Structure formats: structure tokens, C-alpha cells
Amino acid sequence: MLSVVLGLILGAIIMLAFGYDPLLGYSSLIDGAIGSPFYVGETLRQATPLILTALGFAVANTAGFFNIGVAGQALFGWVGSVTIALMFPDLPKMILIPFCLIVGALCGAVWAGIAGVLRAYFNTSEVIVTIMLNYTALYISNHMVRNVLTKADDATPRISENASLRSEFLASITENSTLHYGLLIAILMCVVVWIMMHKTTLGYELRSVGLNPYASEYAGMSTKRNIILAMVISGGLAGLGGTMEGLGNFENLFVMGSMPSIGFDGMAVALLGAGNPFGILVSGLLFGGLKIGGVSMPLSSDVPSEVVDIVIASIIFFVGANYLIRYIMNRVVKVNKGGVN
């Protein structure tokens, strides 16, 4: 919470430095995030894929791996889900949506599993491997759009109604926002991941490997197995995040010039949520509100929307500097108690 406050304060200082009114800027941001049912729906919709990709990053991070490839895994899940949706448009909705979700998760899991296998058996850096796989996923995705799913077009047709996560009910209660049922999936996965990591043998082993792989191996746990499982589960969750984009937010796949932002923003959400699934749920909603509310800032207060990116970056900086913040706070407390001269 202190990191968020410090990030907002730094954003306000920057606004003042460039001649903008921070109170007007932040009031515009809040109004654009939760000022009406439509904006609330858009904030929840924006948060949905961020929560899932953040969960994916958190699982790998808890096991001691920095899965910087969640963006590529999310994109692969997006590709897989839309491909299935376009191949079988007439399947019943109750069959097609779960089919697309499963394929999307599997695509992300397989893509992350490559890095997991290489780390487990060859001790390669998962950071380097996943960075390279990110670009591979991007170019495979663009090839699929232009040469497989279309005839040299830059975007696929929209998926059928049977594959869409959109809901007339959710749209009606949020003034025709694009909120979809993916939010329920994201909340469910927060509960599932918390139970898995804290109430199961698998979760205990993943946390043990993250704390000390040598002690875990000595205790009889298979380090290689847990490395691969951590990356596979991480990629599966990231793939689900990409599936939300394909089946809910955009309802198609298109040529991209860079990786989807949900991957890197999801990493930030996971760091702010301290890797806890329920903390991730809250931080995902915060980031969703910042992203959606930031769009309204230039319209209502003339404050550039880039200020929101500065605020987000500042929050992550202060999260990363939490040790220094805690150290300073402890020193202040000791001084106030007379424990330090």
C-alpha cells in the first residue's frame, strides 16, 4: 500500500513539474475508472487477463524462476483459442468455450514447458530462453494470421457467438461495457492457485524448491520434476490470460508489432500483489483501473495518459525497493523509541 501511495505522490510531483493540476488529473482518472457502471465494467474487463498472467508469473516466481516469457505464453494461448474457435464455429457453446479454454491453457503450458525442460536438464537460464521464445511466439502468431487463418489479411474474422465469453447480462448491468465471463474464471483461478500452493503437496514442493532446491532434493523431492511443473502451470495460467483476450476482449487475432502488454503488466501485478493470489486479485483491479482511467485523463484534465505509465512504473520501483523502505521505517521507529542515538 505504501508503494502505491509513493507512486501516486511521485506522479503528482511530475504533474506539478510540468504545469498540470494533480488533483484534477487524479479525479479524472478515478472518474474514468469507476465513475459509472460502464467504466466499472471496463475496469473489470481490463483486469481479467492481468490477473491470470500475474498468477502464472507468481507460480513460477514462488518456485524460484523468473518467467519473463508470460507475454509469449499468453500470446500462444490467444492463438490457440482463436484457432479452435474459427475451426469449429458451429459447436454448441457449452462445448466450444471449454474446448477453447483448454487449448489456450495447453498452448501456454507447452510454450513455457520448453524453458522448464531446458532449465531442468541443461541448467539454462529461463530468463534468456523465455525472452527468445517471446519473439518466436510473436512471429509465429503473425504468420498464423497472415498465412493460415486468413488469406494475407492482418486480422482474422471475429469468432462465432458460440465461442465468445461476452454476456448480454453483464453488458446490460454495466451500460454496454465489454465485461465478460472471463472475470469469473480469473477469480476462480485465484482460489484454485491459493489452494494448490498452500494446501497441497505439490504446492509445498514448489515452494520448497523455490526456497532451497538442494535441501528439497536431499529431502527426496524431484527438483527436475518440480521445475518443469512450475513452468508448465505458469504457462497454462498465462495462456488462459491470452485466451481472455481472444474470446472476450477482442474476439479475434491480429498482426502485432510487439508483444501484448498483458504479459509485462501481469508481471507488475504479481510483484505488487507479493505473489499472493488474493493480493494479485486486488492489484489486478488497481492496474485495470489505472489503465482504463488513464484514457480519460487527457480528455477531462489535459494530463497526458503517459502519466499513468509513470505512476505504474513508480509503484513497481517502490515495490522493488521494499527492503530499503522497510529499513528506513524500522530506523524511524527505533529513533522515535529512543533506541538509536
Results as ranks from 00 to 15, higher is better:
residue 3 S to P: 06
residue 6 L to Q: 04
residue 8 L to K: 04
residue 8 L to D: 05
residue 19 G to R: 11
residue 21 D to Q: 13
residue 23 L to D: 04
residue 25 G to K: 02
residue 25 G to Y: 01
residue 33 A to I: 01
residue 33 A to Y: 09
residue 51 I to Y: 14
residue 52 L to K: 02
residue 63 A to R: 09
residue 69 G to E: 07
residue 69 G to V: 12
residue 75 L to W: 03
residue 76 F to M: 15
residue 81 S to V: 12
residue 84 I to Y: 09
residue 87 M to H: 11
residue 92 P to G: 09
residue 100 C to F: 08
residue 101 L to E: 08
residue 104 G to I: 00
residue 107 C to G: 00
residue 114 I to E: 13
residue 116 G to K: 14
residue 125 S to T: 12
residue 126 E to T: 14
residue 127 V to K: 04
residue 129 V to Y: 08
residue 148 V to G: 00
residue 148 V to E: 05
residue 150 T to G: 01
residue 152 A to K: 12
residue 160 S to N: 08
residue 160 S to I: 11
residue 164 S to H: 00
residue 167 S to C: 06
residue 175 E to H: 13
residue 178 T to I: 05
residue 183 L to E: 08
residue 186 A to R: 08
residue 186 A to V: 11
residue 187 I to M: 01
residue 188 L to H: 01
residue 189 M to S: 03
residue 190 C to W: 05
residue 192 V to G: 10
residue 193 V to I: 15
residue 195 I to H: 03
residue 196 M to V: 15
residue 197 M to R: 08
residue 199 K to N: 14
residue 208 S to F: 13
residue 226 N to F: 13
residue 227 I to P: 14
residue 234 S to E: 02
residue 235 G to Q: 03
residue 237 L to A: 03
residue 243 T to L: 08
residue 247 L to D: 06
residue 252 N to Q: 14
residue 254 F to H: 09
residue 255 V to D: 07
residue 256 M to N: 01
residue 257 G to E: 04
residue 258 S to Q: 14
residue 259 M to N: 00
residue 261 S to W: 01
residue 262 I to H: 02
residue 264 F to M: 10
residue 270 A to P: 03
residue 271 L to K: 07
residue 272 L to C: 03
residue 273 G to N: 14
residue 277 P to L: 03
residue 279 G to F: 10
residue 283 S to L: 00
residue 286 L to K: 00
residue 290 L to W: 06
residue 307 V to M: 05
residue 309 D to W: 05
residue 310 I to S: 13
residue 318 F to M: 02
residue 318 F to P: 07
residue 328 I to H: 00
residue 329 M to D: 13
residue 330 N to W: 09
residue 333 V to F: 11
residue 339 G to H: 10
